[in-house]
Design a protein around this nucleic acid. Sequence first.
DNA 1: GAGTTTGAAACT
DNA 2: CAGTTTCAAACTC
Length: 199
Amino acid sequence: SHQHEPQLALATTPKRQKVEDAADGCKHCACKKSRCLKLYCPCFAGGGYCSEKCGCVPCFNKADFAETVQTTRKVLLSRQKRMSLKINRRLEANAETMVVFLTQLDDDAFLLSSLWLIIIISILCLCHLQEDAHNSSSSTPPRRGCNCKKSSCLKKYCDCYQDGTGCSLFCRCEDCKNPYGKNEGFMADESKRFIYTGA
DNA sequence: GAGTTTGAAACT
DNA sequence: CAGTTTCAAACTC
Ligand SMILES: [Zn+2]
Ligand SMILES: [Zn+2]
Ligand SMILES: [Zn+2]
Ligand SMILES: [Zn+2]
Ligand SMILES: [Zn+2]
Ligand SMILES: [Zn+2]
């Protein structure tokens, strides 16, 4: 019942890889080649051990190998953090360039650029949320948007669609048709408003 | 169940 | 980082 309400992409909802979907959902991995020690494995990525219901083999994501699991997870998360910081720095640099450009416009043009300011602010917010999440090491960093090329964000291949979330400014999807919110905008008729249809 | 498609994660 | 490969799930039949 809580699945289908649209969500802001920037919200800090670490609801991903819910492998323990009660007795009902029965979502468990079936890994064959990753030994459940890479983020391919939803159990490992979700921070939990594999269960008896998993169809994985061979599986190292068990309490018996707690040290291995912990070490591997630490390495992978650290790599992820490094990559994320890199991308954030680039985004922040681009945002700064854009802000400088916008502030040099005359008044009329500047008013029309409010959409860009919103985008820039959103990007900076995501960067800060991610870094906070990384530093607290407790909450999962917010996902960057999807990168769908062929599914039009209409199937569960798309993480946004699977989460019941609209695509956002951070998605790089092509021909987005996400029913929860398309990564597109349009000019409203008879209005100088730009309506963004995504999250 | 087998085979294909897909995009994140991993690798280089 | 970008281009490529690997991977397990989503999907199709
Ligand atoms: Zn697994
Ligand atoms: Zn598992
Ligand atoms: Zn496993
Ligand atoms: Zn998508
Ligand atoms: Zn998306
Ligand atoms: Zn999309």
